[in-house]
Each structure stands twice: as C-alpha cells, then as structure tokens.
Simulated assay, not measured.
Amino acid sequence: MRVARFYAPGDLRLEDVPEPSPRPDEVKLRVRNCSTCGTDVKILRHGHQRLSPPRVLGHEVAGEIAEVGSRVGGWSVGDRVQVIAAVPCGECATCRGGRMTVCPHLTSVGYQYDGGFAEYLIVPHAVLRVDGLNPVPGAVSLAEASVAEPLACVLNGQELARVGEGDDVVVIGAGPIGCLHVRLARARGARRVVLDDLNADRLAKAAALVRPDEAVCGADDDVVEAVMELTGGRGADVVITAAASGAAQQDALRMAACGGRVSLFGGLSRTAPTITFDSNLVHYRELTVVGANGSSPSHNKRALDLIASGAVPVADLITHRMPLDKVPEAISTVAAGEAIKVTIEP
C-alpha cells in the first residue's frame, strides 16, 4: 500500500509498504478521508517533540472497517467510522477526574501511532480502550466525518471559555479552526460573532463561507478599536485566539469586556512561547483566561452529532480534495493559505 511517511523536517516520503494486519485487539481501517491541518505544516517544517519518526502522518481520519481483530466486539467489516486523534490513557487520576484532554500519558494518532495518510490504518487497542472509534451517522459523508476531530477541539475550547447565549464573540484567525469557531459560537447562541485576520484574502474567503456578523482585517484596522466600537465600548464577552500569534493573545486581553473570557486556543512556537501579559487587565476587569488542548473521545462523538444535525455545517469548508500522492502539495496548499480545508482521499 501507499503511505506518506515523515522522517525529519522537510523530509516527507511517499512509499510503498506492506499492507498491515491487525492484532487480535485492533481494527484495520480502509482510509477514505484524512484531512490536513496547520499542525501537519508545523510538523513538516519543524518536527514535533511528541512525534516519533519515521511516522505516517495524518490525524483527521475517517473510513470503513476492513478487518476486525478476533478479540474486538461491536464492529463489523464495512462499518463507517471516525477515529480520535488524541488518545488518553483513561485510567490515571486526571482522566478519572474528567480531564482527558490533559492526560499526562496522552498519545496520538499520527504521532506515536501511524496515521491516516495511507490506504490502510491500524486502529490501536489504546484507541478502542477509551471508546475512540466512532460510528459515522448515515447522513454524514466520510469527508465531513474527517472534520469531526478539529471540530471536537473547537468544542472543547468553547466549553472551557463558556461560549453561550447572547455573547459577543471575537475569533482571531480565519483559517479552518477560526471558521469552525465562528459556526460553533453561533450554534451555541452567540449574539454576534466577529472574525479577524491579518490576511485580507484569507479573511474574505472565510467570511464568504461562514458569514460572521463582522469581518475585521487587522492589517487595515486596529482590531481592538474596531471591537470596542462594535460593542459600544464594552468589549467582547469571549475572545478566541485561533492563531499562533503572541500579538493576538495580547490584543485579546485588551478587547475583552469586564467579566469576559479569553481563550488562548492557538499555541505559540516553542521557540517563542511567551507574551507580555497585562495582568492589570485581568485583575481590574475580572477576566478569565483559559487554554485549550485538543479534545476528548466524548468531544469527538458530540462533534459528529453537531455535523449530523446541521448545527455546524462543514461540507463547504472542504475546498480541496487530493489523492494520497498529493500529500506534499496538500500541506503546501494549507501553508500558503490557499484553502480552508484540504482532505486527502487515498
């Protein structure tokens, strides 16, 4: 079978390898869709401290079961499924306390286990043990199901930031994650959603799809002033930084309303992880600042339900479809900001 395997920064190889067979406690998946994301770009450029090369990349996976291990129950060949990316242990105190997203023993598909840029994928027992293989509802295409994983991460972030009825929400970053944040915020009852990006072309493309109430280009306008003006000087109830930008995180504190919540959703580079944090803004405005790290198995299930119900449409966010041999081109397309979502169809 054909795979796209990462060896080192800048070294992604398309290879022919033997088709895998599942162990008794595993499931073999015929990959139908594996969507790309900004993390794939980061890995190809810089590697990742948690990734063990050589490794088949791809962690937004959906497909059909091709073979079921002899000790695995509840699944049949041909079942359409979606696979979680982040795999908690399910047994430690953190997991038992309901915080699976920050399990200290977390492993991941495409990092410690071979991922979905391949014709077939072995779903490891670690995924099955935490109920991380999810049936895809009949009305949902497998391309849409592959977007459930990033939507699950967005859902985790918005739950932590308590996005809810009547909120004014600002989303900084108009990539695929920002688009999902806009749609989910609206589904959760936000009164007004503002989308901001420095790239005017990317902002226009995203805004045409997800239709925020306002779109602000940070290259042309002071986004903090714009948000204050839009909210009558009050500021936003929730600000979500869906971009890997320290400046965006600093601006987020400045545009949050009294009692507002700031989600540092987009992580920063490990070579520049610090910002100038105005703690007086947090102190005097009684702000809440939260992080967001991936998703749990239950977030993935609920993300599929949101897609199936139509509450968060994702089909139109998939702007490019490419075969497996085009994985390098797909990642370059993501890096150039020329697509909202690129899905690989092996």
Rank of each mutant, 00 (worst) to 15 (best):
M1G: 13
F6E: 08
F6H: 07
P9Y: 10
P9Q: 07
L14F: 09
D16M: 12
P20T: 14
S21N: 14
S21W: 09
R30L: 13
T36P: 11
K42N: 15
G47P: 05
H48E: 08
E67A: 08
E67N: 04
G69L: 04
V72N: 00
V81H: 04
I84L: 14
I84H: 04
A85N: 08
E91C: 07
T94L: 11
G97C: 06
G97Q: 10
R99L: 15
P104N: 05
T107W: 04
Y113Q: 05
D114H: 09
G116H: 02
L121Y: 03
I122K: 07
P124G: 05
A126K: 09
V130F: 00
N134Y: 08
V136P: 06
A139N: 13
L142S: 10
A145C: 02
L151H: 09
V154D: 00
A161S: 14
V163A: 02
D168Q: 15
L184Y: 06
V194L: 10
L195F: 05
D196K: 14
D197S: 15
A204W: 01
K205W: 12
V210E: 00
V210W: 03
E214T: 13
E225G: 10
E229I: 00
L230I: 03
V238C: 13
T241Y: 02
A244R: 10
Q249A: 06
C258W: 12
G259T: 10
G260L: 01
G260R: 02
T271G: 12
N280W: 12
L281N: 02
D305K: 15
V312I: 06
H320L: 07
D325E: 12
P328V: 06
A330P: 08
T333F: 09
T333Q: 14
V334H: 07
G337V: 03
A339Q: 03
I340A: 08
K341E: 00
V342G: 05
E345N: 10
P346W: 01
